[in-house]
């Protein structure tokens, strides 16, 4: 393995993905370095979410390789290894409704990391405080607003002390007035040096926080660059028309 590869945390190499006849990703390649925030933008159905789902093994790439810190996301045991280190935040939160907020945060650290109940609770409370929801520890997820649920979901992912976080359209299912509270938590995370891959339609967030922006359309990376390059000087006509339609 050459030095350039070891410095990158997530490496996606020539990945394609088809569902039957439908090709969703075509020969996608990109790298994410430690501490980097990469934002993926593009029209609906362009395959953005599928990339994230391939990175932590929720979908299996049809061809190509994905590695996390050199571990290929291929066999079941490798996938489990990667999932312990890579958290995921979903569009629809996917909190566990059958347990309290704090139990949502405690479950995986106790069962996977094997830490004690007390330690898990203490860490969980710290994380809830970090996302501004310490007072909701004993509430049920259903009692929270969408924005609060998504902040809990982020705290739950953080409870595993991941090295990287994947965000799959984290604000798309939220009422407009709740979007900023989730974005604020994400900005805070980015500033703290968390490695993040974010699929989003929030161009303001991409512009402010991203180190790099990938524009994906039709399953291929059409353009890649700094927010300045993509938003102010897009090279591709498709990028320009997409940005014109969303900004």
């Amino acid at each position: 393995m050459n030095p350039a590869e070891t410095s990158c945390m997530i490496s996606v190499d020539h990945v394609s993905k088809s569902f039957g006849e439908l090709t969703v990703l075509k020969d996608i390649s990109f790298r994410v370095k430690e501490g980097e925030v990469v934002v993926i933008i593009g029209p609906s159905g362009s395959g953005k979410s599928t990339i994230l789902r391939c990175i932590n093994g929720l979908e299996k790439a049809t061809s190509g390789t994905i590695t996390f810190e050199g571990v290929p996301v291929d066999s079941a045991s490798h996938i489990n290894e990667v999932r312990r280190e890579v958290g995921m935040v979903f569009q629809r939160f996917n909190l566990f409704p059958n347990m309290s907020v704090i139990r949502n945060l405690m479950l995986a650290p106790m069962k996977v990391r094997k830490i004690s109940r007390e330690e898990a609770r203490q860490r969980g409370m710290e994380l809830l405080a970090r996302v501004g929801l310490a007072d909701k520890a004993d509430a049920r997820p259903a009692q929270l607003s969408g924005g609060q649920q998504q902040r809990v979901a982020i705290a739950r992912a953080l409870a595993m002390q991941p090295k990287a976080l994947l965000f799959d359209e984290p604000t798309s299912a939220l009422d407009p007035e709740m979007v900023h509270e989730v974005l604020d938590v994400m900005k805070d995370l980015a500033r703290s040096g968390m490695t993040m891959v974010v699929v989003t339609h929030e161009m303001g967030f991409a512009r402010e926080v991203a180190n790099r922006v990938l524009f994906i359309d039709g399953g291929v990376v059409l353009e890649e660059g700094t927010p300045e390059e993509i938003f102010s000087h897009p090279k591709e006509e498709r990028t320009r028309s997409f940005l014109a339609s969303v900004l």
């Binding site: 999932r83 958290g87 629809r92 996977v112």
Partner: peptide
């Protein structure tokens, strides 16, 4: 999404 959330946290299918 419940199974996906569990798996993404590192829990096994059985857990």
């Amino acid at each position: 999404g419940q199974m996906e959330a569990g798996r993404s946290l590192g829990l096994s299918w059985g857990q």
